[in-house]
Design a protein around this nucleic acid. Structure first.
Lengths: 335, 335
DNA sequence: CTGAAAGCGCTTACAG
DNA sequence: CTGAAAGCGCTTACAG
């Protein structure tokens, strides 16, 4: 493999001058420049990024921490991040954490030693001390999807409360009076907020809140199949369901089919996420659309901004929380 | 940040000795060892991976090239790769190529200069010259999902022909006599093989092949919606559909619903992949199950084997093609 | 405008 | 068993 010295020798100059021509920093005579370009061409030289990174203290690589890339919302976010990173000359390292604190810690420790330039974190939980520590240690970090109010970390999120409120409101305007909820893990703020939106939507329209209509995830994403069946065994009058994520909605839809319940005439169903597939299930799912790809784009953009700011000023910029808009997508699972 | 020198000074030894204790190579006195361990603890030292990589000429990082992580089969494969890589001390860089030759080339050129240790490639197309070049240049490489018969590159695949043959055979045994096919992009060998399986299954049971029943993807993954509607506008007697991938099957199912066609009594449908969601659509999709996660695991394992072999012997081991078993998963979209 | 030198943080023969 | 030295391939003041 050709190194900078190979090129220097061939062009009859020093390594310094080659370096300067490549980086474009400092003066180089035009004819020397041409000689060097030619030598680069001949040798097929391209710089060793590792050596450069070592010298510069940064690797042009960012890490993406997700709970599990198999969860349907993450591929779209990931794609947004990667496209943006690539355009800016960054590579992205993918890390599935399963929200396991040890895995998280293991990754972060290792990545610090790789001079990773920054972290996009989608796997933030209340137990994620390492991530908070990461940020306090001065590592550029941005939170996506998951968040914590008042956190000092850049955050990209949506208004979960209002979006849920609107979704349930839509069910109510469609005539549903006994609305159940398929509620995700309550240790996550985003699900608590969607729950709060559900509660307030009922309250504000004078509908009673009924604890019996709250399906709480036990374990495994399929648990809502059983929960839905139980729900209808005890509550014949349920006529609407708000699923706090699309994958949960798919399972609910499935259970409803198996119960012989007609959608949306007997029971209207609305989801949350607008994952690709929600348009393709039967019936096509009405849902709240999160701009997943865009969230990834913004996250990467913000992270890169932090990285550059830190290089210039030695510290991270003041944190910004960006709240993106959601849309209510009406398909055929609601009336 | 503590470096190896910080530790050496604190322990009152040389950097060499610290390096030796950490790597476990070469002799170190037990009491010196303890002193060093203690110094490491006190300083919170952990080695700079970049410096090590530069010296060693390898970065303990592998790159994963996929067409698009948003395609439903890749998250599972990716997860298998990453889990295995992590267990073996490797990180994984995610690269979406869109099968764009320029993006592919850009990534590969860049990654070579990062001393990436190896490549898992899921985005191989007939035009992927860079990938063949990569392998000939001695980079550990393994192909997953996509493949090329007789390629000198390690390959993990399934028997696409036989699996398709079996799937269509199942449709026939269920009584279907006019079976259409939703055929993926024919430049990919895997689709050509599935097509061949379809053709032979018809032939071997004495059913006529009818070109009018072949739906060929035009552009955009949703094109099969329109194609399915056209199909039934012209061919009332179709009573079975073989979709060459699950996402295509979802679209076909959707179109069938909209046409008011009963599944499976009017038309039986079978897919290919057994993506997570195929159990959750309505009706649950019968399909050919590819062991996606396991394919990822095996791919990473093989790649790491190549990497280690190359370190030892200076050359890549002889290529191996591994053909994994598929299962026919019978759900309610077939009779 | 150009080159020699030092240094990023590690590892590894080599001598002792 | 241990340390000094050289080197991985780059960049960047500094002197000329």
């Amino acid at each position: 493999m050709a190194t900078i010295k190979t090129v220097a020798k061939l062009a009859g100059v020093s390594a310094s001058t080659v370096s300067r021509t490549i980086s474009g920093k400092g003066y180089v005579n035009d004819t020397t420049k041409e000689k060097i370009q030619e030598a680069i061409r001949q040798t097929g030289y391209s710089p060793n990024v590792l050596a450069k990174s070592l010298k510069m203290g940064s690797s042009n690589t960012i890490a993406l921490l997700v709970p599990d890339i198999q969860n349907l919302i993450f591929p779209a976010i990931t794609r947004g991040i990667e496209d943006t990173a690539r355009k800016n000359g960054f590579a992205v390292l993918l890390c599935n954490t399963d929200e396991d604190s040890d895995v998280e810690k293991g990754y972060i420790d290792k990545l610090k030693n790789r001079w990773i330039d920054g972290f996009v974190v989608c796997s933030y939980t209340p137990g994620s001390n390492h991530i908070r520590a990461l940020h306090s240690a001065g590592f550029p970090t941005v939170l996506v999807n998951r968040y914590e109010p008042g956190s000092p970390i850049d955050t990209i999120t949506i208004d979960n409360y209002q979006s849920a409120y609107n979704a349930v409101g839509y069910l109510i305007r469609g005539g549903s009076k006994h609305i159940a909820i398929a509620l995700g893990r309550e240790e996550l703020i985003l699900y608590r907020e969607r729950y709060r939106g559900y509660c307030d939507a009922l309250k504000d329209t004078g509908l009673p809140y009924d604890e019996a209509l709250v399906m709480r995830e036990t374990s495994g994403s399929d648990s809502f199949y059983g929960l839905t069946k139980e729900l209808f065994a005890k509550n014949k009058n349920v006529d609407g369901i708000f699923a706090t994520s699309d994958p949960k909605a798919f399972v609910v839809l499935h259970a409803l089919h198996d119960l012989g319940i007609k959608i949306p005439s007997d029971v209207a169903v609305i989801g949350f996420d607008n994952v690709d597939l929600s348009a393709k299930v039967e019936p096509p799912l009405s849902t709240v659309s999160q701009p997943l790809y865009e969230m990834g784009v913004i996250a990467a953009t913000k992270l890169i901004r932090q990285i550059k700011y830190k290089v210039k000023n030695g510290v991270l910029p003041a944190p910004v929380c960006e709240v993106l808009n959601t849309d209510l997508i009406v398909r055929r699972s609601t009336r």
